[in-house]
Simulated scan of single mutants.
Amino acid sequence: MGYSRLRALPSRVGVYFLLAMCLFPEVGYLLVWQKLTASLSALPVVTPTTKALRDLRRRVGCAPMRRLFEVLSGPLARPTTPGVRFGTYRTVSFDGCSSLKAPDTVRNRAWLGSPGHGGYPLLELMTLVETGTRALIGAVFGPLARARAAMPGACCTY
């Protein structure tokens, strides 16, 4: 019995692949794919090419990941949880970092700007976290000015 070739990997597989890439950030596409499909030994699993996995990642885009973040993020503490309230107010913390290096491409330099000291363009990450539970409530990333403007009132030192 022959198997027909899949020309395009399903988008659902692409979402799983992107999540697996987050779990194994230091390895390449093919090794991430092998780790993702390791338990499927009873099924005939064909390893796609690096190009097919790259095309899958581009086709899926950021919308499913953004939606997943919107569903999972938010405060977790109940009103009676110790350490998460000051009187009637929920306590939260802002945190930011600008040490995430982006690939040195023309597109990234146009978006993030060029660092004055040379080197890679830097990506700013700003997060809002619930104190006590450390639940991620919100996050923005991008150029330095955009990330700080997206969360007004954030007081950060770098």
Rank of each mutant, 00 (worst) to 15 (best):
Y3W: 15
S4H: 15
R5N: 03
V13Y: 02
G14H: 05
M21D: 03
E26L: 15
V27Q: 10
W33H: 08
L40T: 00
S41P: 05
L43Q: 01
L43M: 05
V46F: 05
A52D: 07
L53T: 08
R58Y: 08
G61C: 04
A63S: 14
A63M: 11
P64I: 06
M65H: 04
R66I: 15
R67L: 01
L68G: 07
L68E: 00
F69G: 01
L72M: 14
S73Q: 15
G74W: 08
P75D: 12
A77G: 00
P79V: 13
P79Q: 04
T80M: 12
T81M: 06
T81G: 06
T81R: 15
F86C: 12
F86I: 02
T88K: 14
R90P: 00
T91Y: 03
F94P: 09
D95V: 11
S99G: 15
K101G: 07
P103G: 10
D104W: 00
T105C: 07
T105W: 00
V106W: 12
V106C: 13
R107G: 06
R107Q: 06
N108M: 07
A110T: 13
G113A: 00
S114Q: 05
L128Y: 05
V129D: 08
V129A: 11
G132T: 03
T133R: 10
T133E: 07
R134K: 13
R134N: 14
G138S: 10
G138V: 09
V140K: 07
G142Q: 14
P143Q: 10
L144E: 02
R146D: 04
A147F: 11
R148S: 10
G153Q: 09
A154I: 03
A154R: 12
T157P: 09
Y158W: 15
